[in-house]
Design a protein around this nucleic acid. Structure first.
Length: 251
DNA sequence: ATTGAGACCTGTCGGC
DNA sequence: TGCCGACAGGTCTCAA
């Protein structure tokens, strides 16, 4: 998509909850694509006009590029490119999100502005995490899911990271910080665990998901895979979402 | 201010 | 075989 031109945008249904401005398609038609980027789970496409196309895949969204072929019922938005390729946005559950930001709005957009550090960036370390968790009364699991604490972690990766760090998802977030606001040693372990989980996920992105894709996620009732641990993976609900963990080795 | 619950949406799966 | 409810996911909105 980068350095190409958008010839036309086709909206294939009118009841998407994507917050399209009324002139969405017109503002995109004929625009050159200056660049494609990402912040947390948001995709950002910079256009020649200075507008930014802001998108989120939700949980079931995806893009594909095709030159010919038929469109399916969940292909909601089609970007016809100058190269004759079609960039197709598919989103069966319509949890995705798509809008257009005028120049400057990227900096003022409330959600984007509130996002915490990228977990793989240098700014994300034990001290940064300590500042965020210090006054949190919620559980570690809920805190890590909060995109203002660290950006881009979803349910599965939070669950996997806590397992790797041997930390209980039920633990109160502020207990990883000293009274003085210093990170306790476990926080450095957690930072590394988060980064390792993400690096592994990126490395394995093209591999078909086997049964052993996750260590604890969706593995309720199975044995804890940690060497020497005799625990059984448990499932609890936190914030309305499933958490999987080993009650024996995660403390 | 912080936290929690509910809404949004639909494909899939287990139970009857 | 078919029906029905539960569930999964991320984020926003509203209420305590």
């Amino acid at each position: 998509m980068a350095r190409r031109r958008i010839r036309a945008v086709i909206m294939r249904r009118d009841n998407l909850r994507y917050d399209f401005p009324p002139d969405f398609a017109q503002r995109l038609n004929g625009q050159s694509v200056r660049g494609v980027g990402r912040r947390a789970k948001y995709l950002l496409v910079e256009l020649g006009s200075g507008d930014v196309l802001l998108m989120h895949l939700g949980m079931s969204g995806s893009f594909r590029v095709m030159r010919r072929g038929t469109l399916g019922k969940h292909d909601h938005v089609v970007f016809e490119m100058s190269t004759d390729a079609m960039v197709v946005f598919t989103d069966p559950r319509r949890f995705g999100f798509m809008t257009l930001l005028a120049p400057g709005e990227r900096e003022t957009h409330a959600t984007l502005r509130a996002l915490g550090p990228e977990p793989l960036a240098r700014q994300f370390d034990a001290a940064a995490l300590a500042r965020e968790l210090r006054r949190r009364k919620t559980s570690l699991k809920i805190a890590l899911l909060d995109q203002r604490v660290v950006a881009g972690l979803g349910n599965i990766y939070v669950v996997e990271a806590l397992y790797r760090a041997r930390l209980s998802p039920k633990r109160r977030a502020s207990t990883l910080v000293t009274r003085a606001g210093e990170p306790r040693p476990a926080l450095a372990t957690l930072v590394t665990a988060i980064q390792d989980v993400l690096k592994d996920a990126i490395r394995n992105q093209n591999r078909p998901g086997g049964d052993d894709r996750f260590l604890v996620y969706d593995r309720e009732g199975r044995r804890c895979p940690r060497r020497g641990c005799t625990g059984t993976i448990a499932r609890i609900v936190q914030g309305g979402r499933s958490t999987f963990y080993c009650p024996v080795c995660q403390t």
